[in-house]
Structure formats: structure tokens, C-alpha cells
Design a protein around this nucleic acid. Sequence first.
DNA 1: ACCTGAACACCGTTCAAGT
DNA 2: ACCTGAACACCGTTCAAGT
Lengths: 234, 234
Amino acid sequence: MVTRQQLAQRPGRTRAERGSISAEQILAGAKALAQEIGLDALSMPRLAAHLGIGVTSIYWYFRNKDALIAALTVDAARSFHPLIVPAAEGTWQDSLFETFTRLREAMRADDLACDLLFMRGARAGEDALAYFWPGAEAGLARMVAAGFTPAEALQNITILSLYNRGCVVLERQMRRAGVAPDVPTPVPADYPLLSAALEHQNTRGVSDEAHAAQLRAIIEGMALRLDARKAAHP
Amino acid sequence: MVTRQQLAQRPGRTRAERGSISAEQILAGAKALAQEIGLDALSMPRLAAHLGIGVTSIYWYFRNKDALIAALTVDAARSFHPLIVPAAEGTWQDSLFETFTRLREAMRADDLACDLLFMRGARAGEDALAYFWPGAEAGLARMVAAGFTPAEALQNITILSLYNRGCVVLERQMRRAGVAPDVPTPVPADYPLLSAALEHQNTRGVSDEAHAAQLRAIIEGMALRLDARKAAHP
DNA sequence: ACCTGAACACCGTTCAAGT
DNA sequence: ACCTGAACACCGTTCAAGT
């Protein structure tokens, strides 16, 4: 047990010089510490100790803890924007598949970003949203070239985004709860269809194979709908 | 400002009689209080004051706050299980559409359940999962009768569940952040496709119309995939 | 067996003060 | 202008005690 007084009076802690602290440093320290101990465990005293400064010094750069979290959220959103750019080659189907596979993988590898962007976190803000536009526009262009209207193309992106968000949130919850993803769900024999279907699937997460298959199924459905519309109104 | 001492020493507060407190009462009080002030603001002292008992009395019935939250989560999961039952009549498409429309509406009307089941919350536990099985089995049966394999049918349900979860989480986040859902997203003119598509859509939530259209699009894609497979392997 | 307050180690934030 | 500790109202939890 380390009390707050002990933290502040740690040997080797001297008063920080004027100008020796910056908002960027605090933010970087908060990010590193949150990645280490988890967003829930991040506290102002812990952060101050991590940075070797007084607790209240943080308040000169961030109005309160919410403002600090908001800044972390914007940072997380920004770090994901390069992932939105669709591949230069291939069909619109492949492009969507790759983009959303990449996004899920990145999210799964970054619990902090997950928590900030999807779980408890604040919004990233309009400015962070702007980072996503170039990639989204390029993705839309692909689909419009294939025959979708802009509204249909955006609907496709929205569906895949929301599906992916659902995946990411479910997986994050399971990880947080410490549930092993590959343990099969036991189903009583009263439910023959469920039993049959769950033999090679489970409810505690989405395996890479299942995610890939589901993405492909959704995208194939979009392609078939486009074909059907083209056939109806040639 | 009401201090903890003042809470405990409120006039009219007498020592509760033996057997006058029950786990059910505490749970009901916690649920009501959390619905009123929000899950984040729920604290043991606040709950005790709400129930008119001493703070530490809660600990006789629940090992700690996590256990209390877990019980709330199971309760929330259980209250949703009647919503899973598919309608008795109509196509499998209509049945899926109605079920997931109903679920989203119920979730949007219940912030507490949202927070417990999807956001920060713990898992509901395997026993709560069992409540979903009868409805899921009935839904699977519909689709299998239409020609899907059990695995395909479960994939369909999974896709819609994850899509819906994504919707619900996004909407909860916007509500929490106090963002008005119908304010259109401003897009600079550099992105003509996005601008065109966002004229009748927005990024701050999913309108009822958009949700309905997206559900229908996903389900129609499933139907077309089934047709295509039947045509290929008659 | 059941209910309790005192006590403890935390937390976020304000404020008056140092440099 | 920037950095600080003391102080305050919280929080979750333990513990020894009441009934």
C-alpha cells in the first residue's frame, strides 16, 4: 500500500522546473499509463506519480479529468484514421472486406482505444470525424462506380461499421471479463438446431474465421441486391 | 452538499429491524436509483441512503459492489428474454425484422440495461444466456424451414445481433454525450459523394427509418444469398 | 443471524500559496 | 506563468461491535 502522501514525498522527487511540463507530455504519460493499468484504474494521483509531478499540476493543463479523457479520445480516433484508406486495387467487395477486417484487428489490439471510442468514453468530437472523410469518400467512389447510388453506398458503409462496432464491443467485454473466447457454449439437448449450429461456433466472441465469413456474407448480400436492382431497372 | 455523516444521521432513521432487509429489496432499490441518477452515479452510500439503511448493511447481502452490479446485469438480461420470441405468423424475414426492431426499441428505452449489458457492464452469466435459447431455437427453425442450414441460420442471427449491438451502443454513446440525433453532420464540399449521401442521413445516430432500411437491406441480402445457393445446388 | 458506525486508503477538485 | 501541498467532500471496503 502506497499512500498519496508517500507518492508525493517519494525520494528523488523535486519541484519540477517552470516549463518542464507540457500538455503533450501529460497526454503521452496518461496514454502509456492507461495502456499499462487500464483506463478504469487511471487516476489523477497515479498519473502524477507516473510523471513525477504534483497531482494538481495536471489541472493547469487540463480543466478536469473529463477533459483529459476527451483529449485521449481524440488522440485515439486520430491514430485510427490511416486505417480507413481503402486498398488501391481490387473490387469494392475486397476493399470493404479488407478495410473492416483491418479495423477490427486494430481495435482488438488496442483495448484503450476500444474503451475510449466505443465503451464508456466520451465522443471524439467533430474534428476527429473529419479524419475519416477522405477514406470514406474513396470507399464511396468505389461503390458508386460499381452502380450504387451515394445513399446506398453510405448505407453499406454504415451497416458494416455498426456490425463491426458490435463485434468489437462484444470482444472487448469478453476480454474484460476474462472469458476465454474458444470455450464452446454448452447447450442442452432440448434445442437441436442450436446445438447443431453451435458445434462449430460460440457465443463468447467472434473468431477470426466467423468474422471473415460474416463480413463476406453481408458484402455478398449487398452485391446481390445491386444485381437485383440492375436487373429490375436495366 | 450532504456529507456521509449527515446521510447516516438523517432524522427518522432508526436501526433497521432484523430481517427487515432482503437482497431483493436492495436489488430493487439499486435498480430504481440507478435508473434515476445513472449507473455511474450509483454508489454504496447513496444506495444505503435511498434504502434508509446503514451503508455496511449492503455488504451482508452482496460481497461487494461488483457483485451488486452483476446481479443487476442478470436482472436486466432476464427482463429482455420475452422480447426474443419471434412472432407466430409471417415470413422468417418479417420475424427477424420485428424481433430486432423490438430489441433496439427496448434497449433505447432502457439506458440502465444498455449500460449493464453492452457498455461498461459485467457479463450476464451463462444462466441468463439460457433465457435466450427458446426464442433463438424458434427463430432458427423458421429459417431452417425456409432452406437455411442451422449454421447459416445462426450466422444470420449473429450478424443481426452484432449489427443491432453496434446501433444500440452508438445511440447510447450519443445520448450520454447529450448529442442531438437529428442535427445533420456538416461536410465540406470537397467530398461530393459524402455530401450527397449525408443530405438525408447523419453520423450521430441511426434514425428509426435508417435502422429499418438497414435491417431490411441485411435481411434481403440473406434471402438473395439463399436463393442463389438454391439455384446453384437445386 | 443480521445490522451498524468508525476507520482506512483511496478518489477528483479547489484554493491559497510558493517560485 | 507555472507548479505545489493542504484541505474537502466524496468513494469502496474491512472490522469490531452492537442487538
